[in-house]
Design a protein around this nucleic acid. Sequence first.
DNA 1: CGTTCCATGTAAAACGTTACATGATTCT
DNA 2: AGAATCATGTAACGTTTTACATGGAACG
Lengths: 181, 181
Amino acid sequence: MSRTNNSFFAVLGLLMKGPSSGYDIRKQFNGSLRYFWSESYGQIYPVLKDLVRDGYARVEEANNSRQKKLYWITPEGEAVYRRWLAEPTNPIQYRDELLLKVYLGSRQEINEIINLFRQECNALEQQLAVYNANQRELEQHREHASYPFWQLTLGYGIMSTETRLHWCREAMAQLQNLEGV
Amino acid sequence: MSRTNNSFFAVLGLLMKGPSSGYDIRKQFNGSLRYFWSESYGQIYPVLKDLVRDGYARVEEANNSRQKKLYWITPEGEAVYRRWLAEPTNPIQYRDELLLKVYLGSRQEINEIINLFRQECNALEQQLAVYNANQRELEQHREHASYPFWQLTLGYGIMSTETRLHWCREAMAQLQNLEGV
DNA sequence: CGTTCCATGTAAAACGTTACATGATTCT
DNA sequence: AGAATCATGTAACGTTTTACATGGAACG
């Protein structure tokens, strides 16, 4: 096992919720998870294979109709998952293209940068609309055991997006001021 | 040129500020930039080579003492940089291990998750202290032409970290409540 | 009967970090 | 003299996406 191997544990974590196929897993990474975690087929299928090879999951060809393989987590798999969960998370290392462009900015390019902020504001407003829709959707699942956890992650999405939007608006105003000088 | 090739433009952007060596560039990516953008030697030197090959920069072996190569941006380089700057930024796609663990969480694992939040709070508080030190440092450069841009990026760092810290504290409180039930 | 979605998988390319090799210069 | 830092570079490894190949099932 390599350094962090997060793809491995992300897939394993989904299997903790119940048996899934590679396709199901991909759909999940493309759903509510997408805002903070995603994996492509190119990762998922090999991980699934490794999981079985190492005894952390077992496969079962679904007997009903479709050519579908269901993966089930084993007790060994649950154990390594729990070990990973308890380990401290390593700090996020994101790359932010907008921040980079702003940092590199100069007075000559101020209009371009204001424009980037404008676009970002639009994108963030749209994102907030999506989150709000997700929020309403999530309310249908109030009774689900995972509800508090899902609510937390969605809440973070909303909060951080609002913060960024606020910052973008402030920044735009400041740069417009600067431009006037 | 591939899909986004951001490493390429990140290096080029630094050359816009004045001639640099690969080593200088690395230092910059390890300085205030590090919180939202970083590149390792393994990227920087090859990019520099490509830049020269494609006519976007030229090299000059520094004649004074040290075995140092200075890279200067060419007018062609400035042109492609400005083209990139004006292009819309593509949305950030970060992976957040803490969010993943929370999303996958269940009531059985609630103590582990509370613990993760506690650790995250500590880390964020430390980060804020660093940002505050950076803030004081930055005040020394009020007159620098780039000051407003640097201030904006640092401001974002502080705001987003505070938001996350706030969220972590809230989340911890909620989970502790839940645990009590 | 054609389109869409379900479903599995891999190869190639792109992206990125880490570790190492090498040697000069500066500082103590 | 020895340690730290300056400085360049690459090879190996690891990670991740994209694009493709393949075919069955459901739907209109």
